[in-house]
Computed example of a mutant assay.
Amino acid sequence: MLVDSHCHLDFPGLAGRLPEVLERARAAGVTRMVTISTRVRHAPVYRDLAEAHPEIFFTVGTHPHQAGEEPDIPADEIVALARHPRCIGIGEAGLDFHYDNAPRDVQARVFRTHIAAARASGLPLVIHAREADAEIEAILTEEMGRGPFRAVLHCFSSGRRLAEAGVELGLFVSFSGILTFRRSEELRAIAAAVPRDRILVETDAPYLAPEPHRGRPNEPAYVAETARVLARTLGMAPDDLARLTTANFYRLFDKAAQGDAAQAGSAP
């Protein structure tokens, strides 16, 4: 059993062919997936996906690309939306200084709002970090000093220092198809140094398809390819890696276990 801890099932590359995407995921042993929010105002879309498909959970939050569209949504509103039984996390939120689609000060303000929502709700925050390692580390360190919260550095492709800082702060680190790329030797070295009880796998579908699927739309089934490379990187058997990352997922996103139990209890 594998979990795709981060994908975007509402995006055009996946939404129009969702039944076949879910079938291929099941065939690959991917039995759970989390569709990640990019806009709080789209929460009904994510909710409907999760309500219609028992293998799907969702989060609620504003991506840094969209921070300028939703600059002032209060933490209380995010927390209220996150009370849905299939919502298991906050975000994704963070900083993206590669594209700078929103002003950097707005991204930072929205990021801190989501940290507050994670702290208040008790749900883990999904963090987007691109070309902003020092700023992300500074905000996380400062905010953790104000009160603990749980979080994952998703689709990790940053430097070793941010991985180390995240681990020091109690965060998880999630690896995507980037880990499988031929030139990702340094990223694989970083993954090998992350404590095994803090590692997750994901696709970030429909983006970043792993080898040997590069150039195609990514989908949850392909997380198995990333898991195979991660297993080899860690010197583990693929089945052991699957069990490890699945257990890690349920420890971080512990509300998912409640959702599974509720689903099982309602089955005929």
Rank of each mutant, 00 (worst) to 15 (best):
residue 25 A to N: 10
residue 45 V to Y: 05
residue 76 D to C: 08
residue 95 L to F: 06
residue 76 D to V: 04
residue 52 A to E: 12
residue 110 V to K: 09
residue 114 H to Y: 07
residue 125 L to V: 03
residue 100 D to W: 04
residue 74 P to L: 10
residue 96 D to T: 13
residue 83 R to W: 01
residue 17 R to D: 15
residue 93 A to I: 05
residue 87 C to F: 13
residue 51 E to M: 09
residue 70 E to T: 02
residue 20 E to M: 14
residue 121 S to P: 08
residue 70 E to M: 01
residue 59 T to K: 10
residue 23 E to K: 15
residue 46 Y to Q: 08
residue 79 V to I: 10
residue 76 D to L: 02
residue 77 E to L: 07
residue 47 R to P: 03
residue 46 Y to E: 04
residue 20 E to A: 15
residue 93 A to E: 05
residue 113 T to F: 09
residue 114 H to G: 00
residue 89 G to S: 10
residue 36 I to C: 08
residue 106 V to Y: 04
residue 27 A to L: 14
residue 64 P to H: 02
residue 105 D to G: 00
residue 41 R to D: 15
residue 28 A to H: 05
residue 30 V to S: 10
residue 34 V to P: 01
residue 50 A to Q: 05
residue 115 I to C: 03
residue 24 R to K: 13
residue 28 A to P: 08
residue 66 Q to T: 03
residue 107 Q to Y: 02
residue 80 A to M: 12
residue 58 F to A: 11
residue 45 V to Q: 12
residue 47 R to F: 04
residue 44 P to W: 12
residue 27 A to V: 11
residue 78 I to R: 00
residue 83 R to D: 08
residue 79 V to R: 01
residue 115 I to Y: 00
residue 59 T to I: 14
residue 18 L to P: 05
residue 49 L to E: 03
residue 98 H to S: 14
residue 116 A to C: 04
residue 116 A to E: 15
residue 50 A to G: 09
residue 57 F to V: 08
residue 126 V to K: 06
residue 42 H to E: 15
residue 32 R to A: 12
residue 102 A to F: 13
residue 66 Q to N: 15
residue 34 V to K: 07
residue 87 C to H: 10
residue 124 P to C: 07
residue 116 A to L: 08
residue 45 V to K: 06
residue 46 Y to F: 15
residue 93 A to Q: 04
residue 67 A to W: 06
residue 85 P to A: 02
residue 42 H to Y: 11
residue 65 H to T: 04
residue 34 V to H: 02
residue 79 V to K: 01
residue 59 T to M: 13
residue 108 A to Y: 01
residue 23 E to R: 15
residue 114 H to I: 02
residue 44 P to D: 07
